[in-house]
């Protein structure tokens, strides 16, 4: 379904029951406006990935509807999902290639995405020679080439160390501040959610339902040391408390 103007993504009463009977999410409704960055936190198995798959059209909802824009969303999976036989630049070029863009345009888009993600000098590397954080950057750059108006992030930094995680978070913020895409960012880190998003959705344990929607009272650009601000702490505490409820 096509979203109304000004809306990047809207879930209306979305439920998903898998053929084996697992009910992943139930009656989920919320909206992401154009240019808005929303985070989803919830316990593992709450149906967060399922929500993103439904949003992208990879999975059909069992009930309810989902409305999105006309273009393919950028999807950054938990795994970098790079093609191991392709170099960094060939991996980044994949989506433009699948879209059938001419070679020269492809090259421009790739060069731009490489410079946006700081991958210069690694163009010819194979994925296996890169660290986990660098692979995630390549995955991000690949999604960027298509200039999506909506980005879906599925715990993209779950598998990297804390320092890399912060740096990648900063990069996503920087990209967002520059491009102002709409974003739906799934994470299990409360601090990451509050730091990146202007609104945090808290999901219950399975089947996932929306327990709380918490606004984050900060504008962009956001500095890294925002995390040590008192209001930031209070917001994080509110999210954390709602998350505690989800286990009850």
């Amino acid at each position: 379904m096509l979203a109304a103007s000004g809306v990047a993504l809207e879930f209306r009463g979305v439920g998903k029951i898998f053929p084996d009977g697992t009910e992943a999410v139930r009656g989920v409704s919320f909206m992401v406006e154009d240019g808005q960055f929303v985070a989803v936190v919830g316990p593992s198995g709450a149906g967060k990935s399922t929500l993103l798959r439904v949003a992208s059209g990879l999975t059909e909802p069992s009930s309810g509807t989902v409305a999105v824009g006309p273009t393919v969303p950028g999807y950054v999976f938990q795994d970098p999902t790079l093609l191991p036989w392709r170099s960094v630049q060939a991996n980044i070029a994949l989506l433009a290639q699948l879209a059938g863009l001419p070679r020269t345009r492809r090259r421009e888009l790739v060069a731009e995405a490489i410079s946006l993600t700081g991958l210069e000098g690694f163009e010819r590397h194979l994925p296996r020679t890169l660290s986990g954080g660098m692979r995630m950057r390549v995955s991000l750059a690949r999604a960027l080439t298509m200039r999506p108006s909506l980005f879906l992030f599925d715990e993209p930094f779950g598998a990297v160390d804390e320092i890399t995680r912060q740096r990648l978070g900063q990069e996503v913020l920087r990209l967002y501040e520059r491009e102002r895409f709409a974003g739906l960012f799934v994470t299990h880190s409360v601090v990451e959610a509050v730091w990146l998003a202007s609104r945090v959705i808290v999901l219950s344990a399975r089947p996932g339902r929306v327990l709380a929607e918490i606004d984050v009272p900060f504008d962009y650009p956001r500095p890294l040391d925002l995390r040590f601000d008192a209001v930031f702490g209070a917001t994080a505490r509110t999210v954390s408390a709602a998350l505690q409820e989800s286990f009850a």
Partner: peptide
């Protein structure tokens, strides 16, 4: 996951 990427696009 790679199949998903191809399906998505």
């Amino acid at each position: 996951g790679q199949h998903d990427l191809f399906t998505l696009h």
